[in-house]
Simulated scan of single mutants.
Amino acid sequence: MSDKILHILQHSLGVDQFGRGEQYRNHFVTGEGSIDHPICMEAVGLGLMVIRRAKYELYGGDDVFAVTPEGKLWMAMNSPAPPKLTRSQRHYQRYLDADCGETFGEWLQLQERRRKANAA
């Protein structure tokens, strides 16, 4: 069950399967009778989540769960380590992180020009 709790905590916080990301949200909406509701209730019992039974119309009357500070720590401690990337994969990841609007080929050419300019 801990794998299912981990997945729900990660999803609630908006991070990937390795726990990486901005944690740009903190909620999980599910209702009684769903597959996820008992998992969230178990997380509440463990102190990893809290439940808000406000039954907001916005959420169709379902329960809204939020991850506690203890749940955030548990998620970080139990998320697997990301896989090792090859040199090429790390290079491509730097391109993605740059979010520059250029194609990968254009970005590579720019990097090569910068490398040559710094070497001169």
Rank of each mutant, 00 (worst) to 15 (best):
M1L: 15
M1C: 14
D3M: 05
D3F: 04
L6E: 02
L6G: 01
G14C: 06
G14A: 07
D16M: 08
G19C: 09
R20L: 15
G21D: 09
V29D: 02
V29R: 02
G31E: 09
I35Q: 14
I35E: 14
I35H: 14
D36T: 15
H37E: 10
P38L: 06
I39R: 08
C40F: 04
E42M: 12
G45Q: 08
L46T: 01
L46D: 04
G47D: 06
L48K: 03
L48I: 04
M49T: 04
R52N: 14
K55V: 03
Y56Q: 10
Y56I: 05
Y59C: 01
Y59H: 07
Y59K: 00
D62K: 03
D63W: 06
V64C: 12
A66Y: 06
A66I: 00
T68R: 11
L73W: 01
L73C: 08
M75Q: 12
A76D: 15
M77R: 12
S79C: 11
P80L: 04
P83N: 07
K84C: 00
L85V: 01
Q93S: 08
Q93T: 08
R94D: 13
Y95K: 09
Y95Q: 05
L96D: 01
L96Q: 07
D97I: 03
A98F: 02
D99N: 13
C100A: 11
G101R: 09
G101V: 06
G105L: 07
L110W: 05
Q111M: 15
E112I: 13
R114S: 07
R114G: 01
R115E: 14
A117M: 00
A119E: 10
